[in-house]
Nucleic acid binder design. Sequence first.
RNA 1: GGGCCAAUAGCUCAGUUAGGUUGAGCGCUCGGCUGAUAACCGGGAGGUCCGCGGUUCAAAUCCGCGUUGGCCCA
Length: 1055
Amino acid sequence: MEDVADQYAPEDVESSAQAHWDDTDAYEATKEAHADDPSYFFVDGPPYTSGQMHLGTAWNKTLKDAIIRRKRMEGHHVTDRPGYDMHGLPIEVKVEQELGFDSKRDIEEYGMEAFIEECKEFAERNRENMDDDFQSIGVWMDWDNPYKTLSPEYMEAGWWAFKQVHENGLLSQGKRSINQCPRCETAIADNEVEYHEIESPSIYVKFPLKGKEGNLVIWTTTPWTIPANTFVAVDSEMTYLGVRAERDGESELLYLAEPVVEEALKKGRYEDYEVVDEVSGEEMVGWEYDHPLADEVPDHADFEGAGQVYTAEYVEADRTGLVHSAPGHGQEDFERGQELGLDVFSPVHGNGDFAEAAGKYEGTFVRDANDDIIADLDEKGLLFASGTHRHRYGQCWRCDTDIIFLATDQWFITITDVKDELLDNIEDSEWHPQWARDSRFRNFVEDAPDWNISRQRYWGIPLPIWVPEGNATPDPEDLIVVGTREELAERVDQEVNPEEVDLHRPSVDPLTITEDGTTYERVPDVFDVWIDSSVASWGTLDFPGNEGDYDELWPADFIVEAHDQTRGWFWSQLGMGTAAVGEVPYKEVLMHGFANDKDGRKMSKSVGNIVTPEEAIERAGRDPLRAYLLSHDQQGVDLSFEWEGLGEMQSTLNILWNVFRFPLPYMRLDGYDPAEANLDDGELTVVDEWVLSRLQSVKSNVDEAWSEFRVHDALNEVLEFVVGDVSRFYVKAIRERMWEEEDSDSKRGAYATLSTVLLETVRLIAPFTPYLAEQMYQHLDGSETTVHMLSAPEVDRAYHQPKLEADMEVLRTVEEAAANARQQGGRKLRWPVQRIVVETTDDEVAESVRSLESLLLERVNSQSLEVVDGFDELVERADPQMSVIGPAFGGEAQQIMGAVQGTSRDELTQDGGLSVDVDGETYELDEEMVEFHAEPPEYLSGAEFDGGTVYVDTQLTDEIESEGYARDVVRRVQEMRKQLDLDVEERIRAHVDVADDRVAAFVDENREFIAEETRTSEFVDEDESFDLREEWDVEGVDVTIGIARVAEQSAAQND
RNA sequence: GGGCCAAUAGCUCAGUUAGGUUGAGCGCUCGGCUGAUAACCGGGAGGUCCGCGGUUCAAAUCCGCGUUGGCCCA
């Protein structure tokens, strides 16, 4: 084992640990070690292969890695197959950009097969990058065998599930109003729509009533939907007014909602109006009107029921209070239209161009036709008002094209039919934090609409649906859903090898099935990519191809993702699990947050506030980055990344490193092997017992934190123990025992204790900082291949002493107060004090202090301890009460006050009463003229602590001065030895000259002590040959010190 | 527009479950310690507990209304 570096250098530690893992196949050994343990089925939420690891995915995988490592240490055979989400529109769009494509036509011309091959290569390329990225932060998962959503086995898992859905009667087809991306020419799901601010036309249009005088006035921001107008909606309970309004000398009858009449007429620049009619919305139902573009769009909706007024719930007293409704171009309109039994008229192609049925506008892109439509309406005198309106509008999440609403034929999983079951199944999983499940997730599921799972695209799992030739919209029982590759091979008319078939388009497109005289052809759509990941819980296990693991393991014990996945993967799995097999596919969920910038703002390219994991690793290291990410709340809360915090974590780990390397040189000199540490060998002092007890408490707290997935609490518990207890207190307490040259029970006790603490701490921290833990373990023990194959350290009740921990807690606060008092009394720790006095009325505090007396004396460097409940050496000093003295003494009051202030009670007391002398005159004082407070006399310095007050007696004695000066000289010599970079054992000649005779005498009587402490062979006279000579100021006295190496000795030391 | 979450020292966060004088680490500053030493320890300064209103003897904490940020939905 190589030497341990003086400084914690993460890069060195990490490359060394990585090399060790590579050399020893440590990952495989770890899995092997837990192969027979009870299984723990973890499922990796597959990241999308669109790019590389960012800070958020680094956090996600680090958290997963820590949990997997810990679960193994707790004795589980953990499923650790990583996954990748590799299909879908995002990749298609990226590839289209690479190839310079603008539309689907470009793809068709290029050739679907070639295009799909490009998508596959793109996804694989990214996956390989991400493989490397994740491994670079120490994520131990089965990288040789990730599940990939594009593999035939995985795609089959999707088919299988979909077949179950169909068999459960939850597959339906039909026209629905969907969000269409006109560039991608496909439907996209609601959650694929992103919103941004745009400026749209804002027009008010008159719809002339038929068979009745007057006009309905509607408002819209999408003029292009007017060709498809089918009905006008009103609020049944609202009052509508017929007003005769005047403009430019002409008058006309307009119908508007009562609350908005004024505002609307103003928009239309009407000068005056008169109310001539008043009706309720209900009464308007059935009114008929002429389609405003009847001439331009001859094929407009004029079927039974079209062109009439109906009520609808989506109407508000806004703008005009009448809503132009086109079921072909809007979700609410569509739903209301269905209720009313109206046909759907949607004269627009998937690419956003008007179709033939749009008459005059055929071939124009819908939004480009807005101006023409407005002009046509104006020309016909139907334009009531026109302007623009800023509002939020949806765009495609991938290509940022503004969406349009279309009613098209799509395939759905009708999860609204099993809403109750979905809500019930939510209860079957436990979430951390729980509010995420009971509030956010439940709300989402309650509102979830049917799941549109068809996409008119290429790169995805093809829909395994076959419909009768020439009947694109059959009843559900007349279609065929294929569940496996084998079933496909059996049923299709063509020759297919189930082992070799690529389920992707276009190879499955031409396959047909002929049964009972009917030939079926495949629906050309592919699945919504959310279907892919929704089946991960069995796709991970290669089910249905491999049934054994599924039977044994499913459902997943545990999943971990960020909070955006409530509507994503947490949901899609619940939806698919419930629809396909009636169960939620996971038992426990940990939901973490997002990594934002230091101001809590989203990291984004445009803002330029992105921090990459690579940069963080370069500046701080892998373990510090991991620990930094994991030290913050892992349950639902976002992280504000800032460099200072990362630096702090590195410092904290450096303390751990220092604690670890501190005993090694001593142990080595003594030939002590920390791996063989035995607490029964040697003598355990009270600090040993204490730190061992603390260790038990820490393990217990860590166990509890892990059991609730309070991952950050588990980590912080360990770090606080290392910094607060081991470094700050224990190491300081045992240093002198380590320095003992001879073998002793005391030293062996300290070795055994520290070794135990270190080895168990290493195991506690291993899941968080795997590299550092490995390096430390290999130095301290190394008997197993890797620290990560060990078990988590267990609490040993025999070493748990809560009472001792409580006592020590008291001692530490007393010690702190004593240090404070020393500072105020100007007495540094190197100089002993005669006594400290602990004043407390709390019996438990008193007992704790007494029980640890010798340790306390040692730590505060005091010769004795007194514990009292009231300290009689305090002096009561007077505070004059001017509100009483003033009225009583008038002109003399100021002088009397001055004389009283700060005087002791003894000095003021005469003949049993209070009085004070001012200029020879005695004034009698009443009790209420003076209040007293207790103060320590000058030779005492006090400081309060929680539970009492500590007084330090700072009076000097010759003995104290003698020791104080001697230790000051020792300290200076040590400092000089260090400047010369002398070896610990190296001997010196020294000269000490003290300018003050009295102090010189103190130093002289301690020559032997000084020589021993500083490895001084002999004291010599002033000499020219010193290696170093320095002038020091020790408590105001000039001290000249010279030291020189002893040549022969240092030579002997070097062999 | 709606749901959920967050806001406490210059920075990062505890404390909110169950109301009772707001704490820690880092940073700053002054001091101490000194064979872990580019480490470590103590003191000090530093707070409108996001704002306003309410409940209460008492609110960082409970309730209401806002502001800002995050995620999600429309």
